[in-house]
Amino acid sequence: MPAVKHVTAPTDQELIDFVLHEARLIDTQRLDEWLGLFAEDGIYWMPLEWGQTDPKLTASLMYEDKLLLTIRIERLKGNRTFSQKPRSRCHHLLQTPQIDKRDEAGNEYVTWTPMHYVETRYDDQQLYAAWATHTLAVIDGKLKIKMKRVDIVNCDAAFGNIQLFM
């Protein structure tokens, strides 16, 4: 997707394209570019609890700022990252994102996207069903992620390793 410079508010289609592009960057493991989609204070949140409201005094599977996301991405490149020898791969199957909120005055746009996510390594393949909620803002003329929240349908189940990004 060409980087769209927003002088006016993004259209619904541009919001949808952004979410689809975001998943594509993960699936193609262009993770440095993916990280660039986050605002400087952006957060990736994966709750542990069904309908969770509190990210800090209730446990989350992930609640990561850009520093923690950077550590993850750099780790995946590491020569001594043995849990990634061989590497994991992943695949997103998204429904068309729905626009839940357009607040042009407040510069806040929220999309909701049901998805199936597959993560695979060696002969093992795991399927997760989830909903992604993106809270987006236009910063310096570009859409950025303020919050990506991923609610896994069985968020409280016993999981094995989840090593990439839903």
């Binding site: 446990a59 599977l61 992930m62 609640y63 043995f82 094995g160 390793n161 090593q163």
Partner: peptide, 29 residues
Amino acid sequence: PDLLLERTLMYNRLINAPTSVVGHDDLEV
């Protein structure tokens, strides 16, 4: 103070969760 619980939960999330990179290191071995 609540901040102690917040740190406890951060430790648990960073070290002991199925999504924890430290956990991934250990489970691999």
